[in-house]
Write a protein that binds this DNA or RNA. Structure first.
Lengths: 146, 146
DNA sequence: TAATATTATGCAACTCAGTTGCATTTGTTT
DNA sequence: AAACAAATGCAACTGAGTTGCATAATATTA
């Protein structure tokens, strides 16, 4: 997508990173996804191939510059997403379905603010929820009612 | 501690698990800690030694029965804590200091409730915060002002 | 109590995400 | 173009967590 590429270039420039081949296609892959992606998922969505190590190193620099967040999800692998749906200190919540295992970005939900003990300074907050997504929840009800 | 052992026995009975040597000392180690512990930290705090695999398997059964929670913390290793400071659907928040890397259990903070989209059913919520703990925060101010 | 079944623990070898060090390529600057 | 810096690739490694199977401990029943 042309607009995605433009956005990727703009983001990389903002982060002070050269708009290289690998960075461009990695960012584009993440920008066109509606959920956080693992290193492997990103690789599969990229048009071209790149070395595993390069992918990890690129992810690190993207996270360092704040262009990308590592989502807080309980899994052995890390999942990454562009930070454009988060405010400075409050990230959008994630909902992980315990049945279909999909991760849903709750970008419409207003992240709650919490009163911290005296002296603490909040830099980033992440809220994670587990349960049944609407699809699996209604499916379960149907099964029960029949 | 005698009372800790009693509590461990009571918890294991409630979870339908035999009060074995390893389970007892693992649970006691976690009950006397004020923060989530990794498998290795638990092993070090146990009076006796136990095989790595046994520790992992025991952690799994403790989590399955709900006696113990795996804390949602961004690290390569998992951290575990007794679930007695959490309510059924809302876990107590964690604050991870970006300077001293300590994890602080905010058991006094009331976990916020969030309005989910239609049809979703929440089973567990975890809130994680990163920033400066009160110690590191005030230390930084002093450095700056001098 | 002895015999038997069930559950818990230990050991060795394995898997796999992520890392390190170094060589090579690509892009930038003068 | 020459020279430098940054990005990418490759091979070998690290370390958390797992698997399969053997042994030990506990519970059950005769």
């Amino acid at each position: 997508m042309q607009s995605t590429d433009k956005k990727a270039v703009e983001m990389l420039k903002r982060g002070g990173l050269r708009p290289t081949r690998v960075r461009m296609s990695m960012l584009s892959a993440m920008l066109t996804a509606d959920e956080p992606l693992s290193r492997e998922q990103i690789a599969r969505r990229m048009g071209e191939s790149a070395n595993k190590v390069t992918l990890y190193r690129t992810l690190h620099s993207l996270v360092e510059t704040g262009l990308v967040h590592a989502a807080l999800i309980r899994d052995r692998v890390q999942f990454y997403e562009p930070s454009h749906h988060c405010s400075e200190h409050l990230c959008h919540p994630h909902f992980v379905c315990t049945t279909c295992h999909k991760t849903i970005c709750l970008t419409e939900v207003v992240p709650p603010t919490v009163v911290l003990p005296e002296g603490f300074r909040l830099e980033r907050q992440q809220l994670q929820m587990e349960g049944l997504c609407s699809t699996c929840n209604t499916a379960e009800h149907e099964t029960v009612s029949v």
